[in-house]
Simulated assay, not measured.
Amino acid sequence: MFTGIIEATGKVEKIERRESNIDFWLSAPFAGELEIDQSVAHNGCCLTVVEVVNPFYKVTAIHETLAKTNLGCWDVGTEVNLERCLRFEGRLDGHIVQGHVDKTGVVDSIENRNGSYFITIKYDESAEYTTVPQGSITVNGISLTVAESGAGQFSVAIIPYTWAFTNMRNLEKGDVVNLEFDIIGKYVAKLLKKQNVIK
């Protein structure tokens, strides 16, 4: 489990394809602290550490993960948002994030609004995956508040710190991003669907 508060960014150093899976070697400031079997969110996608050679570590993305996320778009040199799993000994600063990417979206526009950034993202909306204004959404692993919500799209406002500290500053129109919708909203939608309130 995660909070959506990015701890650091890492860099893809090596990509090894093994049948339908891909092994990624990444460098990260905390690589030497990682242990095998530890969970780390990469652009919001939870992956298991399988090898550590400080300052590098390796994770494996299986076919299902590659099909649901933007990991298949990574190249050597790609900057990745990183968050280690939540410790239950402090404040929950973001929102409850599982590290299970629901689907991808596409950046439709990026506006610089006097130092903050307003990003609109389009996605294939369904009854299970929707947004509401001031609700929570995770984009590339970052816990964000929905500023505006429309049919098949939503917008978020990015403060300067988040822009500078994460890989959001590298986004361009047309880029694919990982999306994890609010877990409470997903449960509500599923219950309503079971009761035939929504289709």
Rank of each mutant, 00 (worst) to 15 (best):
32 G>H: 05
121 I>G: 01
119 I>C: 01
187 Y>G: 04
53 V>S: 12
74 W>D: 01
5 I>T: 09
146 V>E: 09
46 C>E: 00
78 T>W: 05
60 T>P: 01
81 N>Y: 11
62 I>F: 10
33 E>R: 09
48 T>I: 08
194 K>L: 13
92 L>P: 04
51 E>L: 13
167 N>M: 10
115 G>M: 07
22 I>P: 05
149 S>K: 11
63 H>G: 09
119 I>Q: 03
172 E>D: 07
42 H>C: 01
161 Y>M: 07
31 A>D: 04
197 V>H: 03
135 G>Y: 06
153 Q>L: 12
190 K>W: 06
53 V>K: 15
172 E>H: 08
156 V>W: 00
67 A>F: 00
24 F>S: 03
46 C>Q: 01
58 K>F: 01
67 A>P: 01
136 S>K: 03
35 E>Y: 05
161 Y>H: 15
42 H>M: 00
103 K>T: 14
64 E>S: 12
7 E>W: 00
66 L>V: 13
130 T>K: 13
23 D>P: 01
88 F>H: 02
1 M>C: 03
195 Q>W: 11
96 I>Q: 07
187 Y>T: 00
122 K>T: 14
185 G>N: 11
198 I>Q: 02
181 F>N: 08
184 I>L: 13
90 G>P: 00
102 D>N: 15
145 T>A: 03
141 G>C: 05
189 A>I: 05
160 P>D: 06
63 H>D: 15
86 L>V: 10
143 S>M: 11
45 C>R: 01
1 M>S: 07
57 Y>W: 15
89 E>V: 08
157 A>M: 09
193 K>G: 09
161 Y>D: 13
181 F>E: 02
82 L>N: 02
198 I>K: 02
18 R>P: 00
133 P>I: 07
60 T>C: 11
84 R>G: 08
159 I>C: 02
1 M>I: 08
198 I>F: 02
35 E>S: 13
182 D>H: 08
192 L>E: 06
120 T>W: 02
17 R>G: 03
